[in-house]
């Protein structure tokens, strides 16, 4: 039996224009609630600003990131022509920080993003199918948990050799197990809820249930967790570069800059901590934003 156009029209008339407000979609609701939280808004604005600066670095940077003048070495903050001073090779710090943001943000976000995709799929599979699939996936991740994250990242990228690609690969590998574990535990809980049975009772097959019902319930939790990992990843990436396992000089990268400026800490302490300050600010913003997101995505609140 189909709705005839006539009855649909009659309905519209009966409902009147009053209830024409189509209620908002899920993400619109989340966005609205996020935009009412001042901390999240400030953090999001800072992050957007940083990303924009990083993208536009070649256009807006006042100097070249790799060319310096030896006579202008280690100028203090506020020097004429170099508002944030210069580093130990006389390169403009503002320029270097702008370019460094490109690398640091890339190394902070991309590994977590890839790990999010892979980890969630693994966790969903393990949680939904259970049995030997679960044992295989979860015991493998347990092996990774035997090592601290930092040590694992250092070991993997040390074994593969320094370089941007290798350190990103190492970071991805480090973040898959925790994401998979979170996804697995949420899936296991969701799978036993009544609505999965209800979906099955209305004719949904396993694939639909995983794809639609389980995935959408697991997604939110894992997504929030992954956002909080971005800051950890940035710090780890900076650490790898600091140890000489990440990007190679003269590429600008916050962690690497912190390392090379280390020797100048008694000469120009304020210039030396600038890259560290950037790392701190960015990871703090990611953390606070993920906190705000968790609050906003909890629809029942």
């Amino acid at each position: 039996m189909q709705t005839t156009p006539k009855s649909a029209n009659a309905l519209k008339a009966a409902d009147g224009g009053k209830i024409a407000t189509k209620s908002r979609g899920y993400w619109a609701t989340v966005w609205l609630s996020l935009s009412r939280d001042p901390i999240s808004i400030v953090c999001a604005s800072i992050l957007v600003l940083l990303v924009l600066i990083a993208i536009l670095a070649p256009a807006i940077a006042p100097y070249s990131p790799s060319q310096g003048a030896m006579v202008d070495r280690l100028l203090p903050i506020g020097s004429p022509g170099h508002p944030l001073g210069t580093d130990e090779l006389g390169r403009d710090m503002l320029t270097r920080l702008m370019y460094g943001g490109r690398m640091s943000l890339l190394m902070g976000i991309l590994p977590v993003f890839v790990a999010f995709a892979i980890g969630t799929s693994l966790g969903l599979m393990a949680g939904f199918f259970g049995g030997w699939v679960n044992t295989l996936v979860m015991r493998t991740t347990d092996v990774f948990f035997a090592f601290p994250a930092v040590l694992l990242a250092i070991a993997i990228s040390g074994a593969l050799g320094p370089g941007l690609g290798n350190s990103m690969f190492a970071l991805t590998l480090v973040f898959i197990p925790p994401i998979a574990r979170v996804a697995e535990s949420v899936t296991t809980r969701v799978r036993l809820l009544d609505f999965v049975d209800a979906a099955r009772a209305s004719g949904a097959n396993s694939l639909t249930i995983v794809r639609v019902h389980v995935f959408n319930n697991v997604m939110g939790v894992v997504f929030i967790y992954a956002t909080s990992l971005v800051s950890v990843c940035m710090i780890l990436a900076a650490g790898l570069s600091f140890l000489g396992l990440g990007v190679k000089p003269p590429t600008a990268e916050w962690g690497l800059m912190l390392n090379t400026l280390r020797q100048s800490i008694y000469v120009q302490p304020w210039v030396s901590v600038l890259p560290g300050f950037m790392i701190f600010t960015t990871s703090l913003c990611f953390n606070l934003l993920s906190d705000g997101l968790r609050g906003a995505m909890d629809l029942k609140r």
Partner: peptide
């Protein structure tokens, strides 16, 4: 089928 606990039988998202 109609389930016992309608809160749990609908997908919350």
């Amino acid at each position: 089928m109609v389930f016992q606990e309608p809160m749990l039988a609908f997908d919350p998202v």
